[in-house]
């Protein structure tokens, strides 16, 4: 898709997913603020359901496909479907590929929902929307400078790794591009892609804590002020499973983006953090 086309199309279907709708509403709220500031119209998928997540994927393939497929059946044609959670993105795209390859299963599901499933729908991450919008325009829209904010871009495991989805675009480096365009300074030499532990954080915290500590230690050793995550589950795991005295704030990418674009209600997102990020924000405000 050419960039000119991308600029004209500002309407998107939006899939929040369970984490953003509940545990991490601060991520959803800040994303909405950022989208508003940039003129993107994120239209929530009506009556969406869970993408199936690792649990359906583990226990029953048909269930996992069906859960994701129902969401695809709710997405109107003619505009891309945007997800913020990398796992949701992964399962929605996997389902689309699976249904493309299996017309019979697709027909069965369409019959059960009483709706067609659009298998040609474009499913993209919010970062892709920003890339299409253009970094020069984005930096021109900035209301607050992020100058002096040293961050580790933390992608976690899913945003560009699953080989089954090689045909789609990947986002390695895009968080840095966006945040550097807004004045922040990326710290490259830390564990940006190490898995946060995913659901083992709920079942086996003793396995996850050393991994999270290692990630946080690497960021602290690189003299970062904070980590900025592309994934809501990573954000939570990095906050709750760090057992070290060193505590670095963990931001959702959308929070920092919205902050730079001039959002005012950031206090109510930041009070929901377990590691208080406000000292870092105050330092940033003082420097500006």
């Amino acid at each position: 898709m050419s960039r000119a086309q991308g600029i004209d199309r500002m309407d998107f279907s939006y899939f929040p997913g369970c984490s953003l709708a509940t545990t991490c509403t601060e991520s959803n709220q800040s994303l909405m603020q950022a989208a508003k500031a940039l003129g993107f119209n994120l239209i929530e998928l009506p009556d969406w359901n869970c993408c199936g997540s690792s649990s359906a994927q583990t226990m029953c393939k048909n269930l996992s496909l069906g859960m994701a497929a129902r969401n695809l059946s709710l997405a109107p044609a003619g505009r891309p479907l945007v997800a913020m959670c990398p796992r949701c993105l992964h399962y929605l795209r996997s389902a689309r590929e699976c249904l493309k390859a299996d017309p019979e299963r697709r027909r069965e599901l369409e019959e059960s929902f009483g709706r067609p499933i659009n298998v040609d729908i474009e499913i993209i991450h919010f970062l892709e929307v920003l890339v299409r919008y253009g970094l020069d325009r984005l930096s021109a829209d900035a209301k607050r400078s992020l100058k002096g904010l040293k961050f580790v871009p933390y992608y976690g495991c899913t945003l560009f790794r699953p080989p089954r989805l090689e045909k789609d675009r990947y986002f390695q480096g895009e968080m840095e591009n966006v945040l550097k365009a807004l004045g922040a300074e990326s710290v490259p030499n830390a564990l940006s892609y190490r898995c946060c532990g995913s659901f083992l954080s709920a079942t086996d915290p003793e396995i996850v804590a050393p991994l999270v500590n290692e990630i946080i230690d690497s960021a602290a050793a690189a003299k970062a002020d904070c980590l900025i995550t592309a994934c809501a589950m990573c954000q939570l795991n990095l906050e709750i499973r760090n057992t070290r005295k060193t505590r670095l704030p963990i931001f959702h990418f959308s929070e920092i983006l919205a902050l730079a674009l001039g959002a005012e209600d950031y206090e109510k997102w930041f009070v929901r953090h377990i590691v208080d990020p406000r000292p870092v924000i105050r330092k940033l405000a003082k420097a500006a």
Partner: peptide, 20 residues
């Protein structure tokens, strides 16, 4: 314990359609 966890997630999905 991991399969127990997945089962609990699925119970929630079956009941609510979303994870609680």
């Amino acid at each position: 314990n991991i399969i127990d966890f997945h089962e609990e997630v699925l119970k929630s999905l079956e009941k609510n359609g979303r994870a609680h």
